[in-house]
Amino acid sequence: TETLALSDIDFAVDQMNKLRDLGVKLAMDDFGTGYSSLSYLQILPITLLKLDRSFITDIEHDNIAYEIVSAVIRIAKSKKIETIAEGIENNVQESILRMAGCDYAQGYLYGKPMPPEKIQEYFDMDEKREFNPRKR
C-alpha cells in the first residue's frame, strides 16, 4: 500500500528501480488524490501517470481542473512519463485531453464494464474507438 511504501521512500524507490531494470513499467494511479503529490513525480521512477477522474469529470466546464490537468501533463512529459486520463465519458473531454497532450484515455466513452466472454467481441468490432494519438 502507499502507506507502507512511502514510510521508507528510499527502500521503495530502490525496489521500484529494480523492477524497472527487469522491464516492469510502473504506474501511479489516481494522481491528484490521496497520497499522490507533485513531489513524488521527482522521486518515484514511474513510467505512467493516471490522472484521477475527479479532474476529468468537469474538465469542459471547470477551468481550474483544466489548468491542473494540463500542468500535470506538461510536468509528466518533461520527466518522460506517459499520461492516461481516467473517466472520459464524452467527446468534449476526449478532445480537451488530446489538445493538452494526454497520451492515453479510459472511460465509458470507449467501453463499459463487461463480462469476460464479451471482451473478444468488443475487440473484434470494426469501429473500435481508440485514444492513442501516436497510432492515428
Score class of each variant (00 low, 15 high):
133 P>K: 02
136 R>W: 06
77 K>W: 12
73 I>V: 14
52 D>Q: 03
125 M>E: 06
42 Q>T: 13
10 D>L: 06
27 A>F: 00
41 L>M: 09
14 D>F: 02
13 V>G: 03
7 S>P: 06
51 L>I: 15
61 H>E: 10
132 N>K: 08
101 G>R: 11
67 E>K: 05
25 K>R: 11
48 L>C: 12
14 D>Q: 10
84 I>P: 07
37 S>N: 11
21 D>G: 08
94 E>R: 14
120 Q>T: 14
131 F>I: 08
36 S>Q: 04
82 E>C: 07
49 L>Y: 05
122 Y>T: 10
108 Y>K: 06
80 K>H: 15
14 D>V: 01
103 D>E: 06
10 D>T: 12
100 A>V: 12
100 A>E: 07
57 T>D: 01
128 K>P: 12
4 L>Q: 14
118 K>T: 09
30 D>Q: 04
37 S>R: 00
79 K>L: 15
34 G>W: 01
34 G>V: 05
39 S>I: 03
85 A>Q: 06
42 Q>L: 11
110 Y>P: 01
47 T>P: 02
27 A>E: 03
23 G>A: 06
83 T>K: 10
94 E>V: 06
5 A>D: 07
37 S>P: 11
46 I>Y: 02
74 R>Q: 14
113 P>C: 12
13 V>R: 00
129 R>Y: 01
42 Q>Y: 09
18 K>W: 00
26 L>Q: 06
62 D>M: 07
47 T>S: 15
96 I>L: 13
112 K>E: 07
65 A>K: 10
72 V>W: 08
34 G>S: 07
9 I>K: 12
105 A>V: 03
134 R>P: 00
11 F>Y: 00
1 T>Y: 00
30 D>N: 09
15 Q>K: 06
81 I>S: 01
67 E>D: 10
65 A>V: 03
119 I>N: 03
112 K>G: 04
42 Q>H: 10
126 D>N: 14
130 E>L: 15
54 S>P: 02
47 T>K: 10
7 S>E: 11
54 S>E: 06
113 P>E: 11
5 A>M: 10
103 D>Q: 03
46 I>G: 05
84 I>H: 06
98 R>I: 11
63 N>L: 13
24 V>W: 01
111 G>A: 05
63 N>K: 13
94 E>G: 08
134 R>I: 15
72 V>D: 04
81 I>K: 00
45 P>Y: 04
11 F>S: 15
7 S>N: 08
81 I>D: 00
98 R>T: 07
73 I>D: 09
69 V>I: 14
119 I>L: 14
5 A>Y: 01
85 A>L: 11
3 T>S: 13
17 N>P: 10
66 Y>F: 14
83 T>S: 13
68 I>H: 11
99 M>K: 15
102 C>Q: 02
38 L>W: 08
15 Q>M: 11
131 F>L: 11
21 D>T: 02
25 K>Y: 01
133 P>C: 09
80 K>V: 13
18 K>A: 15
4 L>Y: 12
108 Y>G: 05
25 K>N: 07
33 T>I: 12
91 N>Y: 09
